[in-house]
Design a protein around this nucleic acid. Structure first.
Length: 293
DNA sequence: CTATCTGTTCTGAC
DNA sequence: TGTCAGAACAGATA
C-alpha cells in the first residue's frame, strides 16, 4: 500500500527518468482509471514531479498536471526498453509453472495495466492497478491549489511541529491516536503500516485517546514518525504485496518492520512479549502490549 | 464451492 | 459537526 515513503520513492525514481520528455501518446485501457481529456496533455513536456500526501503529480509544460492516487494496488513503472525481454522470459516461467511467477509484475503491459503513457523517445510509463481503486486525473493549477488545502501537515515540512499537531486535536479528543495519525486531513501521508510502526517506536498504544496524550508523548510521537518515514524512504518503501518502485523493483523496508504484519511473533524490543493484532476503525492494527503504553 | 479478509478514500446515514 | 458502515474492486486464503 503506497504511503508517503513509497510515493516519495516513486517520485524520486520518476524524476530521474521522465523530466524533460514529451508525452507522445496515452493509451487508456480502463476508462475509470483516467479522468479528464487526454488530448489536453498529449504533446506537452514533463517539467517536474511532486508529491503531496500519498499523491504523485506530474507537472506539464502547459501548466496542467497529471495527478495520481495509487490507493492500495497502484503502480507506476517506467520502461526505457519497450522490446521488453523480461516479458518473454516471464511468460515462459508463468506457463511452465502453471501459476504467476515471482516476478509476475515485471511483465509489461499486463492484465492489470490500466494506462500506458508513451514518451517522445518511445519509452513508456505503465499505470498498473489490480483493484482499480487508483486513478489519474488531469488537473488545472487552480484545482491543484484547492486540493492542497484538503490535506494536512506534510511530515517533512517546517509546519510539522508539536504545537501544530496538538492544535488539531481540538474537538477530536475522543478519537484514538491511530485514527488521528492516519487522517489525511490532519497529517498527510501516514497509512496503516507507518502509523503502527511509529506508535511502536514511540511506545504509545494505538488505542490511546488523544485527549490523554501528554506533551512529552506528542514530542516522542512526532520524532518517531520522522524517524520511521526517513528509514522507510532510505530502504525504498515497504513491499507488502503489490508495491514496486518506478523501475518495477520491490522495496526493502518490510525486513525492518517491527510490528506491522508480525502478529504472534516475538517483540523486537526483546521484552519477551508477542505482537498483538486488533482492529481499529476497520483496519488491522499491530502493537506490543508490553512496550506500548 | 462460498465466505471472509485485505486497506485507501469517498459517500451517505445517523 | 463527528462517527461509522458500506461501497468501489480483485484476488488470496480459509
Amino acid at each position: 500500500m503506497p504511503e508517503l515513503p513509497e510515493v516519495e520513492t516513486i517520485k524520486r525514481g520518476l524524476s530521474d527518468k521522465i523530466v524533460g520528455k514529451k508525452i507522445a501518446d496515452i493509451e487508456i485501457r480502463n476508462a475509470k482509471s483516467f479522468q479528464g481529456d487526454k488530448l489536453l496533455v498529449i504533446g506537452y513536456k514533463v517539467i517536474g514531479i511532486e508529491r503531496r500526501a500519498k499523491l504523485i503529480r506530474i507537472e506539464l509544460s502547459n501548466n496542467l498536471s497529471l495527478l495520481f492516487h495509487l490507493k492500495m494496488t497502484g503502480q507506476l513503472v517506467y520502461r526505457q526498453d519497450t522490446r521488453n525481454k523480461i516479458q518473454e522470459t516471464n511468460k515462459k516461467i508463468e506457463f511452465a509453472g502453471g501459476h504467476p511467477s515471482h516476478d509476475w509484475h515485471a511483465v509489461l503491459p499486463n492484465t492489470h495495466t490500466r494506462i500506458i503513457f508513451t514518451f517522445d523517445d518511445k519509452s513508456k510509463l505503465f499505470f498498473n492497478d489490480l483493484r482499480k481503486f487508483g486513478w489519474c486525473k488531469v488537473l488545472t493549477p487552480q484545482a491543484i491549489e484547492a486540493l492542497d488545502k484538503e490535506y494536512g501537515i506534510e511530515p517533512f515540512s517546517s509546519d510539522f511541529t508539536v504545537s501544530n499537531i496538538v492544535v488539531r486535536t481540538n474537538k477530536l479528543g475522543n478519537r484514538n491516536i491511530k485514527q488521528f495519525l492516519t487522517d489525511q486531513k490532519i497529517i498527510a501521508g501516514i497509512g496503516n503500516i507507518y502509523a503502527d510502526e511509529s506508535l511502536f517506536d514511540a511506545g504509545i498504544m494505538p488505542t490511546r485517546k488523544i485527549k490523554d496524550i501528554k506533551l512529552s508523548e506528542w514530542t516522542k510521537i512526532r520524532a518517531s514518525i520522522l524517524k520511521i518515514l526517513k528509514l522507510a524512504i532510505k530502504y525504498g518503501g515497504t513491499t507488502d504485496s503489490d508495491y514496486v518502485n518506478a523501475e518495477g523493483k520491490k522495496g526493502g523496508m518490510q525486513d525492518h518492520l517491527k510490528v506491522y504484519h508480525r502478529t504472534g511473533k516475538p517483540c523486537a524490543g526483546n521484552c519477551g512479549s508477542k505482537i498483538k493484532r486488533i482492529t481499529i476503525g476497520g483496519r488491522g492494527t499491530h502493537y506490543c502490549p508490553k512496550c506500548q503504553k
